[in-house]
C-alpha cells in the first residue's frame, strides 16, 4: 500500500493555512526533545525581584520550568532546605562532574572581600556571594546574568556604591549571557533558558544580549511614536502623548516591551508612566533623571 489515504481537500484560505502552520509549529515544539538540565539559581546582592518576576511567568510558568525544563537545585527564595545543608549542596555540585546551568541575579559585592553579602555559612565560616559566583561560575556549562544588578551592578551599584557592587562579568572571565532589566521580564529568562535547552545558545548581540528579546529600540515600536514624530509632548504624567520631555528613556533602551508587555502581557511601563531605561546598561545612574518637569518644550 504505497498510496496515501485520500483526504477531503483542505481549506486554502489564509486563515486556515495560518492555523495549520501554527498547529504544526506547536507540535514540533512539543515533540522536540527537551533535555532536562540542572539549574542553580543564585541570588546575590540585590532585591530578589527577578525570582519574583520569574514566578510571574506564564507559558512556560514556574511549575512547568521545574517539572519539565530543569532540575532546580538551589534558590534561596524557594528551596525547602535551609542553613548549612542548603549551602553544602552548592559545594557538592562544584566538586562533582555534573553539568549545570548557572543563573545569577543580584550584584557581586566586593567590599571587605565580599563580606557585604553572604550566601550562607558552613559551620562558622561565612560563604560570600563573591566566593560562590567564582566557584560555580567556573564550573557551569552556561552562565546567565539575570537582571540589571547581575549584568552591570544595576541599582545595587548606584552611587556612592558603598558595598562596591559590580556585575558578574567583573569577577568572571568567561562568556555570560546577559539579560538586563529591572527586573527581567519572565519571558526573557524563560525564553532564553528554553532556547538553551532545545537549540543551544540563542543569537546574541555584541553586548551578549539575546537578539530575540533585545534587538529593537523601544522608541521604534512605541505606540506613542507618532506623537514624537509630530512634536506632541506630554507635559505631565498620565497624558497619552509622547513622554520624551518628562524623561522617557525609550529612545535609548532596547527591549521588546512595547509588543511583549508585562505580567501576562496586560500592560507595560509606558502604559503607566515613563520608561526609566531599566534594561539599559548603566541603569540607574546613567538613566537618571527619571522624571523632570522643567525641560524646554518649545
Amino acid at each position: 500500500m504505497s498510496e496515501h489515504p485520500v483526504l477531503p481537500p483542505e481549506s486554502t484560505d489564509n486563515e486556515s493555512v495560518a492555523a495549520r502552520l501554527a498547529r504544526e509549529a506547536k507540535r514540533q515544539v512539543d515533540q522536540s526533545t527537551l533535555k532536562k538540565k540542572k539549574l542553580v539559581y543564585l541570588e546575590l546582592n540585590g532585591c530578589s525581584g527577578n525570582i519574583i518576576s520569574l514566578l510571574n511567568g506564564s507559558n512556560p510558568d514556574f511549575e512547568y520550568m521545574i517539572t519539565s525544563m530543569v532540575d532546580l537545585l538551589y534558590s534561596n527564595s524557594l528551596m525547602a532546605a535551609e542553613g548549612e545543608q542548603a549551602v553544602q549542596r552548592l559545594f557538592d555540585l562544584a566538586d562533582s562532574e555534573e553539568e549545570f546551568i548557572l543563573a545569577v541575579e543580584g550584584a557581586v559585592a566586593l567590599k571587605n572581600k565580599g563580606m557585604y553579602h553572604l550566601v550562607g555559612k558552613i559551620g562558622d565560616r561565612p560563604v560570600t556571594g563573591l566566593e560562590m559566583a567564582e566557584l560555580l561560575g567556573k564550573k557551569a556549562t552556561h552562565v546567565i546574568s539575570v537582571g540589571a544588578c547581575s549584568v552591570d551592578g544595576g541599582p545595587s551599584a548606584a552611587r556612592p556604591n558603598l558595598s562596591q557592587s559590580v556585575g558578574l562579568q567583573r569577577v568572571l572571565d568567561r562568556h555570560i549571557i546577559k539579560l538586563p532589566g529591572c527586573p527581567v521580564n519572565p519571558d526573557w529568562f524563560l525564553g532564553t533558558l528554553a532556547h538553551l535547552l532545545m537549540f543551544g545558545e540563542p543569537k546574541l548581540d555584541d553586548m551578549n544580549r539575546p537578539l530575540m528579546f533585545y534587538s529593537t529600540l523601544i522608541h521604534d515600536r512605541c505606540p506613542r511614536r507618532p506623537f514624537f514624530d509630530q512634536g506632541i509632548f506630554a507635559e505631565k504624567l498620565g497624558e497619552p502623548y509622547c513622554l520624551f520631555k518628562v524623561g522617557c528613556r525609550g529612545p535609548v533602551t532596547r527591549t521588546d516591551c512595547p509588543t511583549r508587555k508585562w505580567n501576562d502581557h496586560v500592560n507595560w511601563p509606558i502604559g503607566a508612566s515613563t520608561c526609566i531605561g531599566c534594561a539599559q546598561f548603566g541603569f540607574p545612574d546613567r538613566m537618571a533623571p527619571f522624571i523632570s518637569y522643567d525641560t524646554t518644550k518649545e
Partner: peptide
C-alpha cells in the same frame, strides 16, 4: 495579583503607577 497590579501600575515588580 501582580497582573492586576500591572493593569494600573504598568508592571510588577517595580511599578510605574
Amino acid at each position: 495579583a501582580h497582573q492586576m497590579l500591572a493593569l494600573f501600575g504598568g508592571k510588577a515588580p517595580h511599578n510605574h503607577g
